[in-house]
Amino acid sequence: MDHAIRAEGLVKRYGETTALDGVDLAVRTGTVLGLLGPNGAGKTTAVRVLATLLQPDAGHATVGGYDVVRDAHRVRQLIGLTGQYASVDEALTGTENLLLIGRLLGMSRRAAKARARELLARFQLEDAASRAAKTYSGGMRRRLDLAASLVGRPALLYLDEPTTGLDPRSRLELWGLVRSLVADGVTVLLTTQYLEEADQLADEIAVIDEGRVIATGAPDELKAKIGARCLAVRPADDADVPAVISVVGELAGVAPEVEGRLVTAPVTDSALLPAVVRRLDDAGVVITELALRNSSLNEVFLSLTGHPAGETEQADDTEGVLV
């Protein structure tokens, strides 16, 4: 399989700060690469270089076989960008925004109108089609952003933190849309601060920190490597703590950490939860808290780099039971 995106040794400096410090990336055609990292790690800078918005100080990159600096114009004919920075015109309506891009891409008025209608329907924005984009909710804005980047049927799509700041429902909706695009054969480069998002959408994840890629792999490989989930159990009685430590330790296969009555351990197998419940029940341990949660980006970073991530919000998605 060939690579839709290939970057080698990308360096970008802003005065004293080094935003990219030799980034290598490769995205196979028709797959999703999740670029995972905290704020300021260099994710957006990398996307901007690959989208021809920024010229690297060193290194080179090709998109669809074209050099992003020398053949920028050809690269622009292949890509769509949705993200924190590339945005729609708030003063225009949804229809007008899509019409504008269609016409700029050389479509006839009729073709641009048809394409706008098609995308508005696809992204459930028909009712808001003739309202100015500034009146849209956050989720609607992102959907219009995404639609705008798809007008030209790009073979490659860059999604720069597409769900940051969205409520959980809008996030799920957007994930669904991204999946349907991938099913249509689009190659996607996705940046995100959420391990869960990369896990859900990406075929491969590259973890980026301080302008360098510090780990790459399929989500499962990566999760196995870093212990992507965390089991937490709190017994009602201090006396039961040793029993909990032994059960958790045995099932997780590592020595748990203990903080007061809270016993935690990284786990890779989520099927563990019922077993823990059964064993503790058998032992007659009464618990006040039992949770299996996704590791936060911080924990991923801690396990990969030994230092916590920058000023990231914790993705503390608790899944499980609070007794």
């Binding site: 021809t52 918005l53 622009r76 960008l81 590339a86 945005s87 015109d89 708030e90 700029l104």
Partner: peptide, 16 residues
């Protein structure tokens, strides 16, 4: 407005 709101970046990713 285009520069601060990101509209310009969108335009720059188009083959214009």
């Amino acid at each position: 407005t285009d520069l601060t709101k990101g509209v310009f970046d969108r335009l720059r990713t188009l083959p214009l």
